[in-house]
Amino acid sequence: MNWTWFHKWGSPKWFYEMSGAWLKGFAIAACVLLAAGLVWALAIAPEDYQQGNSFRIIYIHVPAAFLAQSCYLMLAIAGIIGLVWKMKLADVALQCAAPIGASMTFIALLTGAVWGKPTWGAWWVWDARLTSMLILLFLYFGVIALSQAISNRDSAAKACAVLSIVGVINLPIIKYSVEWWNTLHQPATFKITEKPAMPMEMWLPLLIMVLGFYCFFATVLLMRMRLEVLKRESRTRWVRNEVEASR
């Protein structure tokens, strides 16, 4: 098998040169998708027959929650790549993605709480999904705190990789135990799990918003990663040229 495509990722310069174009593509896609999705979600999609217009919060709540979970999975995958193949770029990706994932989790929690007020009559309900989201936020805080606390860059990356792998193994256990706890401790009146199948005109904007959020994530991640690569390589010729060329 030809591994040159893989080895290319070991070169920061190659990544920096290529990622400029990707960044542009993702940024445009994110802008178009989010704009279209927002208009569709807020103005065009029909209102829910039970929840009325408060249901429109779903169009940011669900994409943010999706992204928060897949971002944690990404942390662990980047961690494995960083630990196994010692790829520096994976370390950069891990440390740059953690704050973005944390902010997505925050959005999911906040919109969940705001949505809960008109739907459940309380700002916060110890619903299984909200609770596991809260725990996910704490897991993100742990990774960020650890990466800040260790001063050596390589050790910090490795420690974060180990922590996120441990976290990913624990995440399904946490999720199931929280769900179990929830069904035991309170009557299942607040189930939003068994939602009736959505009609097409509600479901399509949601899909667009999810795609838009993923593109947004890619954009922001690449922005952070490019800066981090510049910082790490700041003594090289090409970074110097890059710095002098930019504003």
Binding site: I135, L139, L146, A149, S155, I173, W181
Partner: peptide, 25 residues
Amino acid sequence: LTVGLKRGGLLLALLILPLYIPVLI
């Protein structure tokens, strides 16, 4: 993970307490 750090106590709690939740439940 925190053994090399000077003040690891609070950080340790932050890292580990979320992982304790299934056992607690």
